[in-house]
């Protein structure tokens, strides 16, 4: 198991490095921060002083290696905007995103397992067809459009739910619904598909021939087998959800990492942007490893590197 973990960590390290590199250079393409932070009337001396203070006077490559050195010392620089340490800004925003994404994913998985299993239990039944209509619609609705419709109906017209903020349960409803819609639809389809094949697999018949009741057959034998593909997809969906948080957080004014990223791009706040992207990448990296570990725990063949 440890060897397995180590293999996964090493093979994920390279993409992480690419991300760090990419963000660093792309951020600098957005323009010179001095234009934003200094008055139009700033003298060349003031500009030079600003650049020197923030290290912008060095060649980009030198800046990059300095930056790597800082990261190694867990120093992520300061926000240009607030002079607050970038790490602090990012860590403050991150829990809001994690809570949102975590809650959404939990709801999506539980709902998908229940609905997908029910649908798979009797393929082509009325319940199955209803589930498939619901899930295919839900998987293909564009989330930004859905978010705007939700706001129009529930906030503007009915005035039931707030359009932004994090106060109270009501504030959670619209962001969660928006984030939920696609993963839910996709997961229902994946769970249904893998449950249909698990429920018609020979080992399911064998389980029944031993006198196992339907509960044991579905949740013991079949679901455990269906869990692996569903888990892979759930992992991918979680990753894209963390990315999708940018849209949702912007629309609903959710003070998470997505909103922080957008704000720091607009403000050319390089240190914060870099720290935010790095943390997101690290989270995704950790998530992928977590998924692999779950996968290996679920299936001995993965753990032992068998491909049969």
């Amino acid at each position: 198991m440890l060897a397995f973990l180590w293999r996964r960590i090493v093979s994920s390290a390279l993409p992480l490095l690419v991300v760090i590199l990419g963000v660093f250079f792309l951020a600098r393409l957005t323009g010179d921060p001095a234009n934003l932070y200094l008055p139009l009337s700033a003298t060349p001396e003031m500009r030079a002083e600003f650049a020197a203070r923030n290290g912008f006077d060095q060649p980009v490559v030198v800046q990059f290696f300095d930056y790597l050195g800082q990261i190694a010392r867990l120093d992520f620089g300061e926000s240009l905007r607030t002079a607050q340490p970038a790490a602090q800004a990012v860590l403050q925003a991150f829990p809001a995103t994690l809570q949102l994404a975590g809650t959404t994913m939990l709801i999506a998985i539980v709902a998908a397992v229940v609905i997908g299993s029910l649908a798979a239990y009797r393929p082509n039944s009325l319940a199955d067809r209803a589930a498939s209509l619901l899930s295919s619609t839900s998987a293909s609705v564009p989330d930004f459009w859905f978010a705007i419709m939700l706001v129009l109906v529930f906030s503007v017209t009915l005035n039931w739910l707030p359009t932004s903020g994090t106060d109270g349960t009501a504030a959670w409803v619209l962001p969660i619904l928006t984030l939920l819609i696609r993963p839910f639809g996709v997961l229902v389809q994946v769970v249904r598909g893998s449950m249909v094949s698990a429920l018609s697999a020979p080992y399911t018949k064998v389980a029944r021939s031993k006198g196992a009741d339907e509960k044991r057959v579905i949740f013991g034998h079949a679901l455990r087998n269906a869990a692996a593909p569903a888990l892979t997809v759930a992992g991918d969906l979680t990753v894209s959800m963390i990315n999708g948080a940018v849209v949702v957080e912007t629309i609903f004014g959710w003070p998470g990492i997505g909103k922080l990223m957008i704000d720091s791009i607009l403000e050319r706040d390089f240190a914060v942007l870099q720290a935010a992207v790095l943390l997101t990448a690290l989270t995704i990296f950790a998530l992928n490893i977590l998924i692999d570990v779950c996968y290996a725990l679920l299936d001995a063949r993965v753990r032992q590197g068998v491909t049969a």
Binding site: A201, P202, Y203, K205, V206, N225, D299, R301
Partner: peptide
């Protein structure tokens, strides 16, 4: 009790 045809897939791979 019944012994099924397909010995290779009749055991549940994850248990």
């Amino acid at each position: 009790a019944i012994v099924f045809q397909d010995a290779l897939t009749a055991l549940n791979p994850v248990f």
